[in-house]
Design a binder for these strands. Sequence first.
DNA 1: GAACCTAACTTAACACTGTTAAGTAACGGA
DNA 2: TCCGTTACTTAACAGTGTTAAGTTAGGTTC
Lengths: 207, 207
Amino acid sequence: MGPRERREREREEVRTRILDAARELFANEGFEAVTMRRIADRIEYSPTAIYFHFRDKEALLKELCDNDFGALAHQFEGIAQIPDTIERLRRTGYAYAQFGIEHPNHYRLMFMTPHPPIDPAEQELEKGNPEEDAYAFLRVIVTEAIATGRFRDGLGDADLLAQTIWAAMHGVISLQIAKCNDDWVDWRPLEARTKAMVDMIVDGLTR
Amino acid sequence: MGPRERREREREEVRTRILDAARELFANEGFEAVTMRRIADRIEYSPTAIYFHFRDKEALLKELCDNDFGALAHQFEGIAQIPDTIERLRRTGYAYAQFGIEHPNHYRLMFMTPHPPIDPAEQELEKGNPEEDAYAFLRVIVTEAIATGRFRDGLGDADLLAQTIWAAMHGVISLQIAKCNDDWVDWRPLEARTKAMVDMIVDGLTR
DNA sequence: GAACCTAACTTAACACTGTTAAGTAACGGA
DNA sequence: TCCGTTACTTAACAGTGTTAAGTTAGGTTC
């Protein structure tokens, strides 16, 4: 552990300080509202210093999003133990909604904002691993439900069903985030809408 | 029709020219990517000229969104004549999806982007009129389905159900728009996802 | 131990954004 | 003919992400 390692460690430390500052600002005020200069102010560096650690603002965002996807998968911890498949599906839906409501600005960047396609080579998380990949977690439940005959006849495509379930829950959350200030619609409480959606999913898919 | 009227007509003409240019640019490239200067270039005026007709860029957007909400309601023309309530519900879902897919940039601004709350006083469209208000159109269908006993027992809140149906369809479209470039998920074709969602809605709500 | 080199910055600047202040030309009304 | 309003234009401002050109501290090498 010579000076070489220490330098590397210090570098990594600054990097995480940038990430932490950016995460908090993005989460509180949204990506567009936060400037590189304000991130730099927070950590008492010059704005240009950030560019030594990240290619650009987008790269900063990308790294944070990756972390968030991991956090989302963590949200499902404990649910995997629930024995009944359909109950697990219900709980997954609620947990997903909770994540979106608790981190609306993260959710917006993760699921409501178009991003340029990412190079799979530089992907951090392990795709297909239910412990890191929330979609895979859902897909496992759906596959099990199909295999044990819990779903209706004709429903056999696990990906199609997982995508439909995901889209349904995503609809509730994303409308809440984007349109919560809109009184054009006489909104029912979010909890009621979440429960109604989970019910509709289960009633729509199970026998 | 003195010169006073002519002036007013000319003024309105420039206004619509601005709106037309902005609409096309926004639709093709998205709100953020379009600058006031480029809109101005299109119509061969100086950028500041726009500010004589619209308070700011947001106001321009707001006016276009209003038009789009009207266009969405128009998308449902003809569907109102379909006698069977559930078939009408299905067709409304498909028509909504079609609108979103055909105008992704409009859809993004209408439903996927948080806006500051708008003053109801300066609202153009007539809220609650099914011919101008797409949500009201859906609500009428749901109310009818409840009244004629097509929905399951316990499903009696028309607003809650309309919001759930809307959210479900919105989920399909908004995920398509935001995540179509993401190959993390093995996406099924959009048409299959749309149909699967409509089926799940109908199976989940009807007896 | 002196010279050198590179990593990790800072300062200054660029090109661009939405927006505004100040000026101007045309035109209707008195 | 003068005046004032309308509908603009030109020039500028404050702010953005980003980069080019220094600068300085520390480790490496002769």
